[in-house]
């Protein structure tokens, strides 16, 4: 991996939508979240941003990096050849401060009785006593990238919540629960509000492909009618 110290110009959209520029030397193998840490620790302790796992698993650090929704912890500095990086908070959410946005509006629309699903690994193998299916967490890490990238800004519950509804329908065995989930997806702010831009699938860092899930729901709707 490319590992050399370079000087980076990092522009961060902060209070009152003003951009603040920082110039610092960083190892090019580091990530944008490392750069934000470095700025906070050494240059400006007031900088606020969300972060936790640093390996693309918690979903807290999504922001807009050079005009695209990305996880800051999975965006490596060595991909920016001109060493210039602009970081902005996600769109569509209420801003709390600097890069921190309130994703509660999205999370409160997410569905799912369990966050677990069957794994793709050794599916048909023998399993130890007490293990019925090999399980793993869902792909969606609820980072909000898809909601931010979606051009439909009003009266739409958003790509991630719809994807979660479709995932839950595929896991549910209770017919009544399935009907309830479909009813939610078919409300006016559900599938019909989607304009098929598919930017959600493009920016999703964990390849949930919300657009595909919305299409599944759309098909169910037309079959219901």
């Amino acid at each position: 991996m490319d590992r050399q110290t370079r000087n980076y110009s990092i522009s961060i959209k902060r209070e009152d939508d003003k951009y603040m520029d920082f110039s610092l030397d960083l190892d090019s193998s580091l990530t944008v979240i490392d750069a934000l840490d470095e700025i906070r620790i050494k240059m400006d302790p007031t900088l606020t941003y969300r972060h936790s796992c640093h390996h693309g698993s918690c979903g807290t650090c999504a922001c807009i990096i050079n005009s695209k929704e990305r996880l800051a912890c999975m965006t490596f500095l060595n991909e920016f050849e001109d060493n210039k990086i602009t970081i902005e908070p996600l769109n569509s959410f209420k801003k709390i401060s600097d890069l921190v946005v309130d994703i509660s509006s999205m999370v409160n629309n997410m569905k799912g009785s369990t966050y677990l699903r069957e794994t793709e690994v050794n599916k048909d193998s023998l399993k130890p006593n007490g293990i019925f299916t090999w399980e793993r967490f869902e792909n969606c890490i609820e980072c909000g990238s898809c909601v931010s990238a979606c051009p439909v800004k009003t009266d739409f519950i958003g790509p991630a919540p719809l994807a979660s509804i479709n995932r839950e329908i595929s896991k549910q065995t209770d017919e009544k629960a399935i009907e309830k989930l479909k009813d939610r997806a078919f409300e006016s702010d559900g599938v019909d509000a989607c304009d098929k831009h598919y930017l959600c699938s493009k920016v999703c860092p964990t390849k949930v492909s919300p657009g595909k899930h919305i299409n599944d729901l759309r098909k169910m709707k037309s079959e219901n009618q």
Binding site: D27, S29, L30, D34, D37, E38, I41, H55, G56, S57, T119, V121, R136, F137, E138, N139, T206
Partner: peptide, 23 residues
């Protein structure tokens, strides 16, 4: 194993600073 990843840990070194920013 975690979600769609495989993680290997870990190493251990000494630091007087808890703010770690190097790998």
């Amino acid at each position: 194993p975690q979600r769609q990843l495989t993680i290997i840990g870990s190493t251990q070194w000494l630091s007087d600073n808890p703010d770690i920013n190097r790998v």
